[in-house]
Amino acid sequence: GMQLARDEAQADWTVVMDDDGRPAPGAIEAFRAMDLSEWDAIGAAVHHPDGRICEMNRPYRNPFWNPGAFLRTLARMPLGRGRAGFHLGDGDYRTGSPVVRVDMSSFVGLFLSHAALQRAGLPDPRLFIYGDDQLYTLQMRRAGLRIGFAPQVRFDHDTTALQAQGGVVLRPMWKVFYMYRNALMAYRVAAGPWFWPLVPVLLRKWRRKAGDYGPDAALFRTILDQAVRDGLAGRLDRSHDDILRLSRSDAP
């Protein structure tokens, strides 16, 4: 779709969204009313249909590129709230808040200028699901493109993903593989030379999430271990059929 928009359409801007995401009433009008002269891409404020902020679509500033966000993240890590140090806060979502620069925005309500599509290229389809938006927008920022978060441009994400104590709980289980393999690849881009010291911290945190999967905790760890091996190796050629087979068995 993005390739067709880039190569065939004559539109100045293109918006992408998930199949379970949609612009809220007035969102497109709010975007069209913006002064876009300083931006190459605009990320929407994504909410659940009941009004809650959708955590999986909360934009962030890369802490490895922003000293202030890095220090806030370190300060919150002992409390288990490191994520809050570099993701946008609830206050940034209030109507009337200014558009702020971000380094990552999700594909639920991401507006891309034609020039940005030309420069940034296309997402890697081998990622299939999860993390492709992180990698794409981080690479946009590395190329010098400007991404803004606009709280007045609201999207609804009717996702069934559940939030538990350790974060999002994914069903069906095959989604676990893509989430964590692709997250490692995004962290490699985000962290740069800090990536390898960061890996043990990530693995410890992720393995703790097994408790949120109840009777599937062992299966979660099995899938996670394979995802980590592939992610560290940069392997993107494992077939979806292989992942489906892995997700039906808790054997090592």
Results as ranks from 00 to 15, higher is better:
residue 200 P to R: 10
residue 83 R to H: 12
residue 48 H to C: 10
residue 193 P to N: 15
residue 223 I to E: 00
residue 196 W to F: 14
residue 239 S to V: 03
residue 34 M to V: 09
residue 144 G to K: 07
residue 44 A to E: 07
residue 224 L to V: 10
residue 73 T to D: 07
residue 139 Q to T: 06
residue 44 A to G: 06
residue 129 I to R: 09
residue 55 E to N: 04
residue 121 G to P: 13
residue 70 F to M: 13
residue 27 A to I: 02
residue 98 P to E: 13
residue 75 A to N: 10
residue 140 M to L: 10
residue 52 R to K: 15
residue 197 P to W: 03
residue 181 R to I: 02
residue 97 S to R: 12
residue 100 V to W: 00
residue 167 G to V: 01
residue 146 R to K: 14
residue 126 R to V: 01
residue 45 A to F: 00
residue 22 R to Q: 03
residue 84 A to M: 12
residue 134 Q to Y: 07
residue 117 L to N: 00
residue 190 A to G: 02
residue 151 P to T: 08
residue 20 D to L: 09
residue 43 G to H: 02
residue 27 A to F: 05
residue 147 I to G: 06
residue 190 A to Y: 04
residue 69 A to V: 09
residue 39 W to K: 09
residue 156 D to M: 10
residue 21 G to E: 03
residue 49 P to E: 08
residue 130 Y to W: 12
residue 150 A to M: 05
residue 139 Q to A: 10
residue 147 I to E: 05
residue 106 S to E: 09
residue 40 D to L: 02
residue 148 G to D: 06
residue 89 G to F: 09
residue 169 V to T: 14
residue 169 V to A: 08
residue 233 A to F: 12
residue 150 A to R: 02
residue 57 N to T: 13
residue 30 A to Y: 05
residue 137 T to L: 03
residue 208 R to M: 10
residue 85 G to F: 06
residue 137 T to P: 01
residue 70 F to T: 00
residue 188 R to H: 14
residue 111 F to K: 01
residue 153 V to E: 00
residue 122 L to Y: 04
residue 44 A to V: 00
residue 211 G to Y: 11
residue 58 R to Q: 03
residue 81 R to N: 15
residue 170 L to Q: 04
residue 56 M to K: 04
residue 139 Q to R: 15
